[in-house]
């Protein structure tokens, strides 16, 4: 049993460092996120969101505000049509610039975004982009930030 766990762990580590596997994860993140928005799955969006949360240039610190955010955008009728992965990259020291150039946002990435998180840019059918900060876990992923559509 111990051997099986060991082999599985090694397999997961090897797989997760493989470029095509990471690309597949990014594609899945785009697809899953779009489905949640389009189907209005507010509860799941709230559960998958991490606080503090970055919205454009704003650091959101109250969990109930995350609920307000997803509820409002679903109730506003927001949909993501024809979602496509435009770009995916691992968070680096300049990632904050993709969101907003400020000391607050730079510190947010430094203090709160987990190492290895992905910055995913998805293109929508309207030609606009959405930026997501996705934190990857062994069995699942979390949303740490949202920017757009821009």
């Amino acid at each position: 049993m111990k051997r099986l766990i060991f082999i599985t762990t090694i397999a997961v580590i090897v797989l997760s460092s493989c470029a095509s596997f990471i690309h597949m994860q990014d594609v899945n993140s785009v697809s899953d996120f779009s489905i949640l928005i389009n189907k209005g799955r507010i509860d799941t969006l709230v559960k998958l969101s991490r606080v503090p949360f970055l919205l454009d240039q704003e650091i959101i610190v109250l969990p109930k505000d995350i609920g307000t955010f997803w509820t409002n955008i679903v109730h506003a009728g927001f949909k993501i049509t024809k979602p496509e992965l435009e770009q995916g990259e691992t968070v680096n020291k300049n990632s904050y610039l993709e969101f907003y150039n400020s000391m607050e946002v730079k510190t947010f990435f430094k203090k709160y975004v987990e190492k290895g998180a992905r910055i995913i840019r998805l293109k929508t059918g309207t030609g606009k982009s959405i930026l997501l900060i996705i934190e990857l876990k062994l069995f699942g992923r979390y949303i740490r930030g949202f920017k757009g559509p821009y």
Binding site: E58, I60, V61, D65, T68, W70, N72, A76, F78
Partner: peptide, 19 residues
């Protein structure tokens, strides 16, 4: 900034996201 301005921004941004 954090508890008044930020929450105002979040509220209006999400309400007017389609407009």
């Amino acid at each position: 900034r954090r508890y008044i301005m930020g929450r105002m921004y979040l509220t209006l941004k999400s309400m007017y996201i389609t407009n």
